[in-house]
């Protein structure tokens, strides 16, 4: 493992080509020897995984959208070709939509989990990713409420916190993460983050030209509340529809201000205390 930093890498997940197959979930579990974590029918469409957690590091969400009122209206457009309109053009054959998206740890630029970890278990790798060192983690659980996405979690029978490592061990050998390798339609793309951001911008433009005006990027912006995600997405609707927070903020963002205010308050208190002893008061001899 080189001591110097490598180029920052990450994921661009283009949900517009996701077929909801969950190869990513299985490839991840096989590679990382993650245990099965729940054999119950959720009733949430085809999503029986339900959420990211200590033993689910890739989670495919399914959102059925049967009627136009359930989502933003698509404007009717000119046909892109002689074939006819695309992507939900109205009429009984066209008003159904099924969104599918593979969620993952965002490997935030400003990672709250990393900020609050007291043991140094969580650290920033030379690839710009955030990884938990299972031999260090003491199971304090501070990272769990810190994550604005609700990704990291403790394993019940173990106590330690677990999450996606962006296949840190594979990266070190020049191999891509297991989920990206498996994905049949390359919905999950792995690579240098700035290249991915360029590709994503082009893809959104292309979709807009094709009349898919709802297509948008999520987590790509370095000016957002977490400084931009190492794993960002192309969505076809608002993030809340996918169960993603619309405006995530690194929970430690206000810490400096809070410390300043706390410091100021403490000084004021001390000052006031000193003053109360320094000034002569009534009833003193």
């Amino acid at each position: 493992m080189s001591a110097g930093s490598e180029e920052r890498v990450g994921f661009f997940t283009d949900t517009s080509v996701c077929i909801g197959c969950k190869a990513c979930e299985v490839a991840c579990k096989e590679w990382n020897a993650i245990p099965e974590d729940g054999l119950s029918l959720s009733g949430m469409s085809y999503d029986n995984t339900q959420a990211l957690g200590a033993s689910t590091w890739r989670h495919v969400a399914f959102i059925e959208q049967p009627r136009p009122e359930g989502r933003t209206e698509l404007p009717l457009t000119e046909p892109a070709s002689a074939n006819g309109p695309r992507h939900g053009d109205g009429g009984p054959a066209g008003d159904m939509r099924w969104l599918m998206s593979s969620d993952v740890c965002k490997h935030c630029t400003h990672a709250a989990c990393l900020d609050v970890c007291p043991t140094g278990s969580l650290f920033r790798t030379e690839f710009g990713t955030v990884v938990v060192q299972e031999d260090i983690c003491n199971g304090c659980g501070y990272c769990v409420p810190a994550c604005p996405y609700g990704v990291i979690e403790q394993r019940p029978d173990d106590g330690r916190a677990f999450k996606c490592t962006l296949c840190y061990d594979r990266l070190g050998a020049g191999q891509e993460p297991a989920c990206a390798k498996a994905c049949p339609t390359e919905s999950i793309r792995f690579g240098p983050l700035d290249e991915l951001r360029e590709r994503a911008a082009l893809r959104v433009d292309q979709l807009h030209k094709e009349g898919v005006t709802e297509a948008r990027l999520y987590g790509h912006d370095p000016d957002n509340g977490v400084g931009g995600d190492g794993a960002f997405f192309l969505l076809l609707d608002r993030p809340e529809v996918y169960g993603l927070p619309p405006d995530p903020v690194v929970t430690t963002r206000d810490l400096p201000t809070m410390w300043k205010h706390a410091g100021a308050a403490a000084l004021s208190l001390l000052g006031g205390l000193a003053l109360s002893f320094a000034l002569p008061g009534r009833g003193r001899r």
Binding site: A23, A27, E30
Partner: peptide, 8 residues
């Protein structure tokens, strides 16, 4: 590439 079954 592999599907979930091939991956399993």
């Amino acid at each position: 590439r592999l599907c979930p079954k091939g991956s399993a």
